[in-house]
Amino acid sequence: MAVEVPSDFLCPISLQIMRDPVTISTGITYDRESIEKWLSSYKNRHVVVPSCPVTKLPLSELDLTPNHTLRRLIQGWCSLNAGDGVEPIPTPKGEVDRGQVVKLVKEAMRCGSSRLECLKRLKAIVVENERNKFYLQEVESMEFLTSVLNNNDESMIEEAIEILSNTNSPTTLLKHLLTQNPNLIQTLISIITITKSSISSAAAIAFLSSLYTISDQTHKTFTQDTLFIHLTRALSDQIATNPSLQILLHLAPHGRNRFKAVKHGAVFHLIQLLFGSSIPRECELAMATLDRLCECAEGRVELLRHGGGVAVVARKILRVSNLTNEKAVRILYNVCKNNVGNFRVFEEMVEVGAVGKLCAVIEVGGSLKIIERVKVILHLIQRAFDGSSKCVIVIPPRFD
């Protein structure tokens, strides 16, 4: 039996039944979760002033006012229709407002025994929902939290870094923090190196990744070996996998960084990750990072040294995304171009099915650059096997 939901009970954004109705500054009522996602999407696009989804008017403030009357009506309606399978809606927890967050930050800024307790309460608030994250995205609050990272108290450092990684600060605020504290990146690397907590390590890696996104070349060119050691360890332990990959991608364009990453086992762990992962974004980042590392001879040597390196690169072609196809073909192109005299490399390409995948790329079609690289690879394989009975390559009709 279909149960008709009163239109007033539906969220204007998603047309789902409201569970926690709140009213914004334009007077329109929304479900809290839906409007918070809307506001968060504006933040990700770095828009300073979000607008109301219905009226399109800019919001004078971001506070969400609970609509208790509508919530009680919805709860009453759910109770009346419980016999038709409608689930009851619980009363939401008490709300936190901006004033309470500011008060907590100011209390934590005062040196005293209560600072750690304040940080713990702030962490609990910031992970609760997107709205609370907005309350902490202020210069004074963020400057204070980054200053705690230089504290000698390990417990306070752990609380502060977890808050920072969860706040999702906009680019302008991150740039300000890095300008005010040029040693912030080095401080985070030190935390990653010494912390015994996997949660704090993951938080530090996540926050470091966001800083590398907006930092200049001086922060990336001369990077310590210790960071690469801990990033490869994070990949091995599956801790903060995507942020670790993003950091490696930011650092890899610099030659010495590529060498350090390879030296500390990044190629091996990237291959292992590609074998075990079916998550598209994770595979894209891993393949893009592997592509960067295979630009150097040491990276290509490690790829070939791994028994499944060429195989997993070939396997991911046409199975993840166009970006993954592009990076995988580029890896195989670099390997073949730099191993023309090594027959075993081309024999392995045939054995693991890379030739079939490359021919399929031509059949499916792609960018001109990808097709040209595939042609070069196939020509090199064909030349390597000229006069040999071991391999016959059937060239697809669109090859020439």
Score class of each variant (00 low, 15 high):
Arg19Pro: 02
Pro21Asp: 03
Tyr30Glu: 02
Arg32Ala: 00
Ile35Lys: 00
Pro50Ile: 03
Cys52Val: 05
Leu59Lys: 00
Leu59Asp: 02
Leu64Asn: 01
Leu73Ala: 12
Gln75Glu: 09
Gln75Lys: 08
Leu80Gln: 14
Gly83Cys: 01
Gly94Pro: 14
Val101Asn: 02
Cys111Val: 15
Cys118Phe: 07
Lys123Gly: 09
Phe144Gly: 08
Phe144His: 03
Leu145Asp: 08
Thr146Lys: 06
Leu149Gln: 02
Thr167Val: 15
Leu177Tyr: 07
Thr193Glu: 13
Ser209Asp: 13
Ile214Ala: 04
Asp216His: 12
His219Tyr: 13
Phe222Asp: 15
Thr226Gln: 11
Phe228Tyr: 03
Thr232Glu: 07
Leu235Glu: 05
Asp237Pro: 00
Leu245Met: 05
Gly255Pro: 08
Ser277Ile: 05
Ser278Gln: 11
Met287Glu: 06
Leu290Gln: 12
Glu295Arg: 13
Arg300Ser: 03
Val301Trp: 10
Val310Asp: 01
Ala314Arg: 01
Ala314His: 07
Asn325Gln: 06
Ile331Phe: 03
Asn338Ala: 04
Arg344Cys: 07
Gly353Glu: 01
Gly353Pro: 06
Ala360Ile: 12
Gly365Thr: 09
Gly366Ser: 10
Leu368Ala: 15
Lys369Thr: 15
Ile370Leu: 11
Arg373Val: 08
Val374His: 07
Lys375Cys: 06
Arg383Val: 13
Lys390Trp: 09
